[in-house]
Design a protein around this nucleic acid. Sequence first.
DNA 1: GATTATCGTTGACAAATGTAAATATAAGAG
DNA 2: CTCTTATATTTACATTTGTCAACGATAATC
Lengths: 145, 145
Amino acid sequence: MTLAVDATEMTTSEWELMRIIWTIGQASSSEVITLIRAKKNWTESTVKTLLRRLVGKNALKTAKDGRRFIYSPNITENDAMDQMSAKMFSRMCNMKKGKELIKLISETTLSKADIQTMRAVLNDKLQTAPDQVECNCLPGEGSCC
Amino acid sequence: MTLAVDATEMTTSEWELMRIIWTIGQASSSEVITLIRAKKNWTESTVKTLLRRLVGKNALKTAKDGRRFIYSPNITENDAMDQMSAKMFSRMCNMKKGKELIKLISETTLSKADIQTMRAVLNDKLQTAPDQVECNCLPGEGSCC
DNA sequence: GATTATCGTTGACAAATGTAAATATAAGAG
DNA sequence: CTCTTATATTTACATTTGTCAACGATAATC
C-alpha cells in the first residue's frame, strides 16, 4: 500500500532538501548538510530537524545504515510538482488560467521536443475548445473579468 | 510610489478573501463575510482577522466609509498569480518545467483564443529553442534526470 | 433617548514553521 | 579501552497561521 504524501504541505525549506534528495536519489543527513550549504546557511541542527519533519510528513523514508539513516523520497519529484501546480491552479479563476499559462510558456526555456509536444496537445485541444471559459470566481455572481 | 506586495506570502485562507475582493473590486467586511460563507464556514471574527492581516501585508488598502472600511486590492489578481506561479516554477528543476507545462496545458480548459496565442508563442520559441534544457538541481553536480 | 445591530480592535490559543543549542550514543581511531 | 567524531534525539523559542471570543464604539431603530 502506497501511503499518500501531500507534497503541498511541504514548506519551502523542506522542499529545498527534497530537491537534493530527489536529485541524488538518496542521502545521509551529512550529505544533505554538505550539499545544502552551497545554497543555504543552515546549521546541522536545522537540516536534521527538517529531515525529521519530512519523515513525519511521510515525504521521506529512512533505512538504517549502521549508526545513520539513509533518507529517500516517498514521492517522486514529478508527482510533487504535479500536486503543487494543481494546487496553485486551483486558486486561480478558470477564466484566467489560459493567460497565466501563456505567460509561463513565454518565460520558460523549453526544449524543442517539449515545444513539439505542446503543439500536438494544443492542436488536439483546439477541436473541442470553447470560445470562452466560464469564470468561477463567485458562486452565483456573474463573471469576474 | 507603488509599494511592493509579495503575493506569495498570502496564505491560502487569505487568498480566498482576495479572490472575492478582486472579483467585486472592493468590499466592506460584511460583504466579504457574506460572500465567503458560500464556501467557508468561518466566523465573522475569523474573516475580520484575515482582512486585517491582509492590510498588514499591504495586499489590501482601506478607505473609510463612515463607520466602516471599504477594502480594495493593492495588487491585481494577475500580478498575484504571476508571482505565485513564478515562485512555484522557481522550485522546479529547469529540465522538468517543460513536462509540467505540458501537463498543465493538457489538464486545463482553454479557450480557442488562448490556444491560438499559445501556438503563436510556441512557434516563435521553436526557432531558438535548445535541444536540451540544462538541469539546475545541484550547483556543481551533473544532471538530475 | 434607550436598545439593537454593526463594525472595528484586542487578546487568545493551539499548531505549524524557521532556526538552533544541548545532549546522548555509537563507532572508529589510537 | 579511551578519546574523538559522526549521528540522532530532545528541547527550545520566536513567528506565522488558523480560528475565535469578547469588548468597545458608532449608527440605526423604536
